[in-house]
Amino acid sequence: MKFLIIAFHPRSMTPYAKQYEDAISKAGHEYDIFLWDRFSNGSLEKLGNEFIFHRICTLGGNKLKKIYPFYLFRNTVKKIIKEGKYDKIIVLNTMPGFLLHDVLLKQYKNRFLLDIRDYTYEKISFYLKVVHQLIDSSFFTTISSRGFEKFLGENKKIILNHNISNLDKVEKYPSLDRNNKKITIGFVGAVRYYDENIALIESFKQSSRFNLAFYGREASDCHLEEYCKNHQIKNIEFSGAFQNEEKPTLYKKIDIINSLYGNQKIEVLSALPNRLYDALIFKKPLIVTEGTYLAEIVEKYGIGISLPGSQVHNGKIYEEKISEYVSGFNKRQFTINANQLLEKVNNEQERFHHEIDKFVQK
């Protein structure tokens, strides 16, 4: 059999594709993977079994400007599907599924997987209707958060898949200690959520104990480094884009993970980001925004602290709450809590991988 994996982002932003690639290779099948370099323009590139589509399409920003790149994406992938004569397809996220729904529903019923990573345009009734059709016609559909069922509804074809990797690098104990003289709060990944991060920066811009770090490419509407330069804020580190294999090294530099996404948009209310799993693997407590599904998990398992959203931001509350959390931090209890959740996640992942194996072998 021959498979095609369709991603909507570059390789660095789709590390979860590897679990599908490994399963296909283990079963002895061939596959191609389609990746989208959204930061440069150029001709379609073919490197081994990788198709790399080069077309600028910024993360966030004006949605109208995305229409033409989406159109080119659809036409390019349709041509590859036609020429490649693939037996089965794996679609990473709902937007590429929506753009290719006619091909998937007519030609690949029960022969494709849909991997849903976040909330996109589901508030549009027609879009949500198509997503439901895709779920019903898929071999199975996986979601990265049970919070997604709030807008997708329940369906027997939906199973849970956690955004987890680097399990060979699980740390035993956290680096955070209540006696640390210097503490770094770090954001690792595509740098977004401008309002939340500005609130955090303003809270700690004069702190002698807390430093902030941002490791990742800034989104087009999140110019935090420029803001810090303009306001002469010194205790902030920016390092730009990184490769996924650099994550363990980056996490050694921080003590607390910044996972403040706000609580005013449905896409952040329901998601469980990679940083949750990074917290479990690298043993770093999280700071998250109150009123989100992520906050529910963090509070239930005792692996971090929830802060008010930026719309009610008060610099003193942020500093006081984080300082209080650090003062009462119990390394042993945190480790127990993180490992308990990690075990639960691993058990759920076993079922997910079992379902992948059925898909690639059937």
Rank of each mutant, 00 (worst) to 15 (best):
277 Y>V: 02
276 L>E: 00
181 K>M: 04
146 R>Y: 12
271 A>T: 13
235 N>T: 06
270 S>M: 04
263 N>W: 02
46 K>C: 07
243 Q>G: 03
272 L>A: 10
306 S>K: 14
82 K>Q: 13
258 N>Q: 05
309 G>W: 02
31 Y>A: 08
261 Y>N: 03
70 F>M: 13
250 L>A: 05
146 R>S: 10
323 S>T: 15
205 K>R: 15
284 K>D: 05
52 I>P: 11
333 Q>D: 13
149 E>S: 04
16 Y>D: 12
93 N>T: 13
113 L>S: 02
126 F>T: 12
192 R>C: 03
140 F>Y: 12
354 H>G: 07
101 H>E: 11
362 K>M: 11
258 N>M: 10
322 I>V: 14
359 F>I: 11
327 S>P: 00
298 V>Q: 00
277 Y>P: 02
27 A>C: 10
135 I>S: 06
99 L>D: 08
299 E>M: 11
48 G>I: 09
243 Q>A: 11
361 Q>V: 11
218 E>S: 11
17 A>T: 14
214 F>H: 06
197 N>M: 03
340 Q>G: 00
315 G>D: 10
211 N>R: 13
49 N>P: 06
314 N>I: 05
212 L>H: 10
107 Q>P: 00
47 L>R: 13
310 S>M: 00
179 N>C: 02
317 I>H: 04
182 K>N: 14
251 Y>F: 15
302 G>P: 10
240 G>E: 09
59 L>M: 07
118 D>F: 05
285 P>G: 07
256 I>R: 01
56 I>R: 14
257 I>C: 08
349 Q>M: 15
329 F>E: 09
96 P>G: 05
24 I>T: 07
227 Y>G: 09
72 L>R: 14
267 E>V: 01
42 G>D: 10
121 Y>D: 11
103 V>W: 01
254 I>E: 00
222 C>E: 02
262 G>E: 07
341 L>V: 03
316 K>V: 12
137 S>P: 08
216 G>P: 09
3 F>Y: 15
209 R>A: 03
254 I>H: 00
321 K>S: 12
120 T>I: 11
275 R>Q: 12
13 M>E: 14
264 Q>N: 10
258 N>S: 08
109 K>N: 14
